[in-house]
């Protein structure tokens, strides 16, 4: 290679168009998302996993009791995404957060739309917003926004 030449380069893409079967538990979770509902699964000690798992992460017991949880919850921790990624639900900077929904004992990773990082804080309350057209996919849940505080009650 002569030193005056620019190195050759090329943009390459590796892509696999996977379709995976869900099984009963993840299938019910995805079915729920299509119906604008969020389901978790109960552990033997009564704790609720959201998203649901097929087996208890500690005891390895099969889990079977699915139940619906709230569409609002608390931000456990978060990070700021700027610029937005190709798979981001919005074309603007946003947060990615671990969100513990009311009724759940674990937190779920999803996007939160606020104007700036200064609008984000651990412990803030958020609520789900949904896609108009839902197919049974995690992206049916567009993401979360700040929960509107109820007027004095």
């Amino acid at each position: 290679m002569s030193e005056t030449e620019e190195p050759l380069r090329a943009e390459l893409t590796v892509e696999y168009p996977f379709t995976r079967t869900t099984g009963d538990v993840i299938g019910a979770f995805m079915t729920g998302l299509r119906e604008k509902r969020i389901f978790g699964i109960k552990r033997q000690d009564g704790g609720v996993l959201v998203p649901p798992l097929e087996y208890d992460p500690v005891s390895s017991e099969p889990l079977t009791e699915m139940l619906e949880v709230s569409q609002s919850g608390v931000v456990d921790t978060w990070t700021w995404v700027d610029p937005p990624r190709p798979q981001s639900p919005w074309n603007v900077p946003h947060a990615l957060a671990l969100i513990r929904l009311d009724g759940a004992d674990t937190s779920m990773l999803h996007a939160v739309l606020v104007d700036s990082p200064s609008d984000m804080s651990t412990g803030m309350r958020v609520t789900a917003i949904w896609e108009e057209e839902r197919v049974g996919h995690i992206a049916d849940l567009t993401g979360f926004v700040k929960e509107v505080e109820e007027s004095d009650s």
């Binding site: 380069r9 893409t13 019910a28 699915m66």
Partner: peptide, 30 residues
């Protein structure tokens, strides 16, 4: 495996049995 209790609110609708989860990596090759 034990029988999973599907929540009543989605028992009557068509269940989701599969999802598309494509994997894609775009990279600059030198």
């Amino acid at each position: 495996s034990k029988k999973v209790e599907i929540p009543e609110s989605i028992r009557e609708v068509e269940p989701v049995r599969s999802i598309r989860s494509p994997v894609k990596l775009v990279y600059d090759f030198v």
